[in-house]
Amino acid sequence: MATDIRDCVAVITGASSGIGRATAQALARRGAEVVLGARNLGDLEAAAEECRQVGGRAHVIPVDVADEGQVRELADRALSTLGRIDAWINDAGVLLYGRAEEVPIEAFRRVIDVNLMGTVHGARAAIPIFREQGEGILVNVASLAGCIGDPFASAYVASKWAVRGLSESLRMELADAPGIHVCTVLPAYVDTPLFQHSANYTGRAVQPAATAHPAGEVAEAVLSLLVRPQREIFVGANGRLLELAKAVMPTMVEERARRRLEERKFQDRSAAASPGNLYSPAPGAISGGWGRRAAASRRRRVPVGAITAAALAAIPLGLLAWRQAQGRT
């Protein structure tokens, strides 16, 4: 299904802040009718007003995506008000820093409840509607963290890997309904308030990445999926190259990622343990106001030439690594 965004009815969770809010605005600007869901009604109203100002129609429904009943209510109200739902964008997410054995287990579980179960709840609410309509696009916002680990964000990484696997499984489940699409978005570092609002049990203040992509760039990627659905879309990093490199040299890539994250993820100053916005919403905004703007050109399709070059370079390296490994055994 290729949706004409002008006539599209889209439900967006996590719409009060960051990527969700930027996506709502981008859709509204193209004339879509958007239903915004998030916990904070005040921020939702503000986000809806932004949508109306750029010419779209917007509705707000407060929701905690960790609660399936609330998500179903969101779907029911959207459907009864607007008559159909063309796209459902699962964007709500929270972030937790800390080692798996040191963070409170409730905090870990809450991340899974929001990021993974929230997506599950959204899918379970949207798919029956899509099945009855015979069409619809489910967009699950995962992360580059759905491709590679992070020594300080295991809950977040686990949830995003799970969202990616969930999306892939749903695609298979829905093979019997050719009008329904499931797409996964895998953004790299994006300038949103997510980092400021993250729960942090590391003892040190988080240092956002030096460069970040504007949330609007992810929003445009989501819109492109509504026009032309794809399985997965990376935004802001050569995700496919990263995957290729990992497939050939997993140990090396993992080790390099670990070092890089350890070196750059935290500031020197201490920070008291905080549950961030895990249990109560923090003020929403599109931008977190941090980081240099990263080059916008590297989203979506990775040039074929770059993949070929990387593959060619990776094969001998992989062989070398394999031989070394053989020599050690």
Binding site: R131, E132, Q133, G134, E173, D176, A177, P178, G179, I180
Partner: peptide, 8 residues
């Protein structure tokens, strides 16, 4: 032509 699609 009825649009709905459910699994068997």
């Amino acid at each position: 032509r009825i649009p709905a699609r459910y699994p068997v």
